[in-house]
Nucleic acid binder design. Sequence first.
DNA 1: GCAATGTACTAGAACAAATAGTACGGTTAA
DNA 2: TTAACCGTACTATTTGTTCTAGTACATTGC
Lengths: 125, 125
Amino acid sequence: MITVDYKSRQPLYEQIIERVENLALLGLLPPDSQLPSVRQLAAELSINPNTIQRAYGDLEKRGVIYSLPGRGSFVAARSEELRERKKQALWEDLQKLIDAAGTLGVSRDDFAARSAEYFALKEQA
Amino acid sequence: MITVDYKSRQPLYEQIIERVENLALLGLLPPDSQLPSVRQLAAELSINPNTIQRAYGDLEKRGVIYSLPGRGSFVAARSEELRERKKQALWEDLQKLIDAAGTLGVSRDDFAARSAEYFALKEQA
DNA sequence: GCAATGTACTAGAACAAATAGTACGGTTAA
DNA sequence: TTAACCGTACTATTTGTTCTAGTACATTGC
C-alpha cells in the first residue's frame, strides 16, 4: 500500500507523508481506518522505526491522522480541508509552471493543447 | 542581475545555474556576453567563490556557458537546444501536475480555467 | 501477565552543501 | 616586465539534515 523510493532526493519521511495523504484523499484509506503500526511499516519498508514515527508525528500535526497510544494510528476525517489545502498548492505550482512557460516562449495554446492531451491520457488509463 | 534565496531548500549552486540558464534563454544575457567573474559574483552574493565555481563548472558541462582561463566566463550560443531541453522538462512537470489534479478531483475545465487566468495575469504584467 | 501499540530520548553514522584557505597558470593592460 | 585580474584545482573543515541504532516508558487489549 505504502511504497517509497530510496533513490529520491526527497526524504523518506516526506515521501511517507505524501503517500498517506494521497491515499486518504483517494478514499483508499477511509476515515478511522487503521494505519500499519510504526514498527510494522518500518519492517515492510526496511527502514528505521524512528523515520516512520517522524512521518506519523508530522501527519498528526497536520490533522491527517490521529494516534491512540497503545491502540494504533488512524486516518482522520478531515479530508475536505486537506483537499482544499492541496488544491491551493496545486494552483501555486500551476502558476509557477506557466511563468516558466512564458520564459520558454510556450504559447497559451500550446500549453492548453498539452494539458488536454495529458488529461485524455489519464482518462484512457 | 543574478539573485539567490538563502532560505530555499534548493542548493545555492543549483539556484545560480537556473538563474543563468533563464537569463540566457530570455536573451538578457546574449551569446558571448561576459558573466561576472567567480570572485566578483561571490562577493555580490556574499557566498563562497567555490560555490560559484561549482555552478559555473556545471553550466559549462551543460554547454550553457564557456570559460576562458585568464579571460572570464561567457554565454554560449546554444540557446535553441537548451530551450528544447527545458521545454521537455516543462511538459513532464505539467503531466505530474495533471496527475495530481486527478487525485484531487480537479476537473479538466477547472484546470483550463485556472491556466487561462494565470496566462492573463502574466500578459497584464 | 503479555504482547502489541504510540511516544520520548540520546547518540552516532552518513551525506550533501557550503565555507575557508592556498596555489597554479593564463590573460590583459599599464 | 609587472601587477591585477581571470579560471581552475586542491584539501580540510564546518554545518545541517536525514537516517539509523538502541533503549525506555505508559497505555491498550486479550
